[in-house]
């Protein structure tokens, strides 16, 4: 597989920040009361992630190892502040609805995590792709949760009122935890199934040409892990 595609698929699905790694949870829980908030937060994080990944990747040889965390944080904080100003200027409604969670993008573990684990070691293009993919994976997850909570909690879809039936629970904080938990469970269930099917196919492919015994211990060991 092309390494760029792999980076992208990793960030988007395989290592989905929200459902697989469970990072950036505060924003996920707080800003999924409606689909539009989820999209807004997701795209904001994506923008910061892309910019910070690119800048950090560019500076990865300049920044001494000892001060890398403070340096990353300053870079991320700068990006977030600029984003905050831009949103206040051009999208005031979204700015208002994100409230205190906008400055808190700084401490969103996804961004520092990607800076630390990826951008500080990889070239610029890879880092940019990783940033966008991880960000879009986060956005997709937030949008899915936002749609679910908005549909059930306020009976609307992206602000369009569909019906009057609403369950207040889903817009409350308790509902956020519940929907998030269920989404992770569903994601785990599906990805386990997919992985299982994938392994079974691999195992069949291996068996035919080699005509040897299946490398069973390896697979079962992995599955147990």
């Amino acid at each position: 597989m092309n390494k760029y595609v792999k980076t992208a698929v990793d960030g988007l699905i395989t290592n989905n920040a929200t459902f697989k790694l469970v990072l950036g949870t505060c924003a996920t829980l707080a800003l999924t009361t409606s689909a539009i908030n989820g999209v807004g937060m997701g795209l904001s994080v994506t923008a910061v992630l892309l910019l910070s990944n690119v800048v950090i990747s560019l500076l990865r040889k300049v920044i001494p190892n000892t001060v890398r965390i403070p340096a990353f944080i300053v870079i991320i904080a700068t990006m977030v502040t600029i984003l905050r100003m831009a949103l206040d200027k051009f999208l005031p409604d979204l700015y208002d609805s994100m409230g205190v969670f906008l400055p808190l993008i700084v401490v969103n573990c996804i961004i520092l995590g990607r800076a630390e684990a990826f951008a500080s070691k990889q070239p610029v293009l890879d880092s940019a792709i990783d940033g966008v993919a991880t960000g879009l994976g986060f956005t997709a997850a937030l949008t899915i949760m936002g749609v679910i909570r908005e549909l059930l909690g306020s009976g609307s879809f992206f602000g369009i009122q569909l019906w009057d039936f609403k369950i207040g629970f889903f817009t409350s904080s308790a509902g956020a935890f519940f929907v998030y938990g269920m989404c992770i469970a569903l994601f785990t269930l599906i990805s386990n199934r997919v992985e299982y099917a994938h392994r079974a196919r691999k195992a069949r492919e291996l068996r035919v040409p080699a005509e040897g015994p299946l490398d069973a211990p390896g697979i079962s060991a992995k599955e147990e892990a």
């Binding site: 956020a176 935890f177 938990g181 269920m182």
Partner: peptide, 11 residues
């Protein structure tokens, strides 16, 4: 997931 559900009841 189960932790989230527990948190849901606490919330």
């Amino acid at each position: 997931p189960i932790t989230m559900v527990a948190a849901c009841f606490m919330a």
